[in-house]
Computed example of a mutant assay.
Amino acid sequence: MTTPYRCPNCKTNKTRFNIIKQMAESVKLDPQTGEVLQTYDEATLEPFHMPYRGPEYKIQCGVCGLVESETMFAKFGESSIS
């Protein structure tokens, strides 16, 4: 996260962002009630339960509210360096 960002939506914001740390929790739910029946850690996942493989961070523009991957904001930030 030491690269310049720029919002790909509003295209003007280069300074105001919210960094959203994603913390996945693997659970098994009751299909009728939605109640959590079991929680898993990385070592105890069942065979048909994939571990979370998404991004560690998401970025939100502090001006227009767009939420995207960090790479999207970084790519637009790189293109604005002159």
Rank of each mutant, 00 (worst) to 15 (best):
S26C: 10
K14I: 13
Q38D: 08
A43W: 07
Y40Q: 05
Q32T: 10
K14A: 15
V67R: 13
I19Q: 08
Y57S: 09
I59F: 02
F48R: 12
K58M: 14
Y52A: 09
R6M: 10
E42W: 07
F76Q: 11
A74F: 05
A24C: 06
L66P: 00
S82R: 14
T15Y: 04
A43P: 00
K28W: 02
F48I: 08
P55N: 13
L45Q: 04
E25L: 11
L45W: 01
A43R: 12
V27H: 04
I81M: 11
P4G: 04
Q60H: 01
K58T: 02
C64T: 10
T71Q: 14
V27S: 05
E68W: 04
M50P: 00
I20F: 02
S80F: 08
C10Y: 10
T2W: 15
V63W: 00
L66E: 10
G54E: 02
G34A: 09
S82A: 14
A24Q: 03
T33G: 08
V36R: 06
D30L: 01
M50A: 12
P47N: 09
F73K: 09
K58P: 00
T39A: 10
P31L: 03
L45I: 03
L66W: 02
G77N: 04
M72D: 10
Y5I: 07
I59P: 01
M1C: 08
K11R: 14
M23E: 15
C61K: 02
V27A: 10
A43I: 00
P55K: 13
G65S: 06
S82L: 12
E35A: 13
V67T: 09
K75S: 11
M23N: 15
R6W: 03
T15N: 12
G54R: 05
K14S: 15
I59R: 07
S80W: 08
Q38L: 07
T2Q: 15
N13G: 08
G65N: 04
P31Y: 01
P31R: 03
G77T: 10
C64S: 06
G77A: 03
V63Q: 05
S26L: 09
I59C: 07
Q32L: 11
V27F: 03
P47T: 14
Y57I: 08
R53D: 12
Y5A: 04
M23S: 15
E25H: 10
G62D: 02
T44K: 12
C7Y: 04
K14R: 13
S79Y: 02
E70D: 12
E78R: 13
F76G: 03
C7A: 06
T3G: 11
A24I: 12
G34K: 03
V36G: 03
T39R: 13
E56Y: 04
T12S: 15
N9L: 11
F73G: 02
R16I: 08
C64P: 00
F73S: 05
E70G: 09
S79W: 01
